[in-house]
Nucleic acid binder design. Structure first.
Lengths: 335, 335
DNA sequence: ATGAAAGCGCTAACAC
DNA sequence: GTGTTAGCGCTTTCAT
C-alpha cells in the first residue's frame, strides 16, 4: 500500500543489482550447486543489500508444492494440542509448516474442509474422532494425501494412523482387575466418537472375561468439566463401582476431582484410569494410571505416509501400541 | 504425479466446459456480482461437474494477499496453546487461516522467522517472552504487520498487545496481604522473560508498600515440573513464606503439588497464587487464585491492529487489564 | 456483461 | 555456468 520499497524486492531487482539474469538469482536460492561460487557471492550480496527474500507463493505456484501441511483438529482439547505441537516440530525440522484449521463443533468442520482444498497443501492430517463419515469420504483422494489421525472410523476410507485403542483399554481393564476391582464403570466422552466406542469395547470385553459388567456412561463432552459432572452421576447411584475408567485423561481428571469432591477417596474408595498420557495426568495431584500414546511415533508414521512415495496410497493402517503407565489412582494397598 | 484428472482442474477447464471465457469463471468465484446470474449458474454447474476449486496460491500471487496469519509461539506451553486456539477460531470466522511456527528453544526462533518471511503472510503474531530483542528488531516492519503478543519487551519496537502484567501482579500481591500473608516469595519462570520481570516488579512493589520483602526465585522454565522442583527449594530453607506467588499458572500448579508433597498444606500453611487464568487453574484439585487474562479481548485487539488500516502503524500499545479470580489457594480461615 | 491480454514472481527446460 | 523463454492459475484493466 504505502510503497515500502524493501517489501517488494523480486529476483529481477536482485538480478539487475548483481548484473546477472533473473534465472541465476533464482538458482542461487533454489539450486545453488548449479551456480559458480563467485556468482553466488555477488548475487547473495546484492540480495542482502536489497533485503530480498524469495517468494514462497510464486515458488509454490510453479513447483506445485507448498511445503505446508494442514491439520484439522478440534479447538479445545489438551490431547490435540499436544499432537499439534508434535506435528509442528517435526514438520519444522523438514522445512515445512503447519496450517491450522481448528474447529469448535462438527458443523464447523465443513467450512474448514472447504478452505483446505484451496490451499493446495502438501498433505492433510484429519483429526478428531467426531468428524462425520461423510466428511471423511469427501476427503478421500490421493492428492493431496490425507491421513486420519487417531480416528478409527476412517478405517477403510482413509489411510489411518492410530494408537491401539482396543488393546490399550483391555490392558487398563486387566490392570484394575489385578488391582482388585470387582465392579466397574466406563465413562465415555461422546458415544458417537469412534475412539470412545473402541475403547469401551476393549474394556468391556476384558472385564467380561472376569465376569465383571461394565456399564457405559456418556459424559457428553471431552473435557474436564464433563468428567467432573459425570462423577456426580456416579455418586448419585446407590453404592459406587470399585473402579471407574475414563474415556480420556482430561475426562478422568475431572472424574477424580468430582469423586473426591463427593467425598470418595481415589484410589482408596474408587480406582480411576484414563487414556492418552497427557502431561497433566502425571501431575502429582493426580498421578493418573493411563494408557500413554506414543505421540512422536504416531506423528512420524503419519508424516511417513504423507511424504514417502513408497507408502502405497491404498488402505494403509498403522495401529501402534500404547504403554500402560501406572499411577497412584490405581495403587491401592489391600489386605 | 499420477495424473489425477480431478486434482488439477483450472478455471480454463471450467471455461471450456461452460462455454465462457476463463476470466468469467474467475469472476464467478471472486466477484460474482459482475456476472449475469444465468452465466453464473452455467459456470457453477460446470465447476461442480469438474470438481473445480479455485487455487489460493495463484490468487495470492496476483492479489498479494494470502489470507494467512502466522504465529510464532513456544511449543510446550499451556498458555500459548490457549492463545493459539483463540486466534485460530477468530481468524476462521474471517475466512483466514493460521500458519503455526512453534519453536522449542530460542535458537529455533531464528529459523522460524526465516520461513515466515517467505510466506508473504498477511500478518504475524510474535509471541513468547523469551524471543530475544535482536529478533524483534529484525521483524520491525510495517508490511506484513507484526504484532507482539504479551511480550512487554517489544514495547517501543513493535505494536504490542498485552495484559497488564504489572497491575495484575500488584492485585495478586494486595490480595495475599489481605489474606494475612506477612512474608512472601515470588517464583519466576525464567528471569530473562520480560513478563516475569514486570510481574515480579508489580508484586514486589505492592508488597513493599506493606513492608514485606519478596525474594525472587527462578524456576528456570515455564512448566509444571519447574514449579514442582522449585517447591523443594522453598521447603529446604528454614521456615517458609506465608505466601508463594507463581510467575504463571502452570508453574504455580507445580508449586502447589510440590509444596503438598513436601508436607505443607495449601492454603493452610502457604498461600499460592498464579498468573494467566488457565482452565487447569480452575480445576477442583487446585482452584488456584490467579490473574485471568482476557484472551479473547487480547486476540481481538491484536487482529484489529493487524487488519484495521485505521490503526496507525506506529507505537501502538494496548495494555488490557486482567481479572483477579480468587480460588481456594488463598482462602484461609484465620482466627 | 463478457472476452482478450498482461502480468504476479518464481521454476525448469532448453539453448549457448 | 548462465541466459532465454515459457508457463504455473489466477486477477484485473481495457476493450467491446
Amino acid at each position: 500500500m504505502d510503497g515500502q520499497p524493501a517489501a517488494r524486492v523480486t529476483s529481477h531487482d536482485v538480478a539487475a543489482e548483481a548484473g546477472v539474469s533473473q534465472a541465476t538469482v533464482a538458482r542461487v536460492f533454489s539450486s545453488p550447486e548449479k551456480v559458480a561460487l563467485a556468482t553466488q557471492e555477488q548475487v547473495r550480496e546484492a540480495a542482502a543489500r536489497l533485503g530480498y527474500v524469495p517468494n514462497a507463493i510464486a515458488r509454490s505456484l510453479k513447483s506445485q508444492r507448498t511445503d505446508v501441511v494442514g491439520a484439522v483438529v478440534p479447538a479445545r482439547s489438551e490431547y490435540w494440542q499436544n499432537v499439534l505441537t508434535a506435528f509442528s516440530r517435526r514438520l519444522a525440522e523438514q522445512g515445512k509448516q503447519l496450517l491450522l484449521f481448528s474447529f469448535v463443533d462438527a458443523d464447523h468442520v465443513e467450512s474448514a474442509l472447504d478452505s483446505v482444498e484451496q490451499y493446495r497443501l502438501d498433505g492433510l492430517v484429519l483429526a478428531s474422532s467426531t468428524i462425520r463419515l461423510e466428511h471423511l469420504v469427501r476427503m478421500q483422494r490421493p492428492n493431496p494425501r490425507v491421513v486420519a489421525f487417531n480416528q478409527p472410523a476412517a478405517s477403510g476410507l482413509l489411510p489411518l494412523v492410530t494408537v491401539d485403542n482396543e488393546a490399550g483399554a483391555r490392558d487398563l481393564a486387566e490392570h484394575i482387575v489385578a488391582r482388585g476391582a470387582r465392579t466397574a464403570a466406563f465413562v465415555g466422552t461422546v458415544a458417537t466418537a469412534s475412539t470412545d466406542q473402541i475403547r469401551y469395547r476393549g474394556a468391556a470385553a476384558a472385564l467380561a472375561d472376569h465376569q465383571i459388567a461394565c456399564p457405559y456412561l456418556e459424559a457428553g463432552a471431552f473435557n474436564y468439566d464433563a468428567g467432573y459432572k459425570a462423577a456426580a452421576r456416579i455418586l448419585d447411584g446407590d453404592g459406587h463401582p470399585d473402579a471407574v475408567m475414563g474415556g480420556s485423561d482430561e475426562l478422568a481428571l475431572g472424574l477424580i476431582d468430582g469423586l473426591r469432591t463427593g467425598g470418595l477417596d481415589v484410589p482408596g474408595d474408587v480406582l480411576v484410569t484414563g487414556f492418552d498420557g497427557l502431561p497433566q495426568a502425571s501431575w502429582a495431584g493426580y498421578d493418573l494410571t493411563t494408557l500413554v500414546q506414543p505421540i512422536e511415533v504416531l506423528v512420524d508414521e503419519t508424516l511417513a505416509i504423507l511424504f514417502d512415495s513408497a507408502a502405497a496410497v491404498a488402505n494403509i493402517e498403522r495401529i501402534v501400541p500404547g504403554t500402560l503407565r501406572e499411577g497412584k489412582t490405581t495403587r491401592r494397598d489391600r489386605g
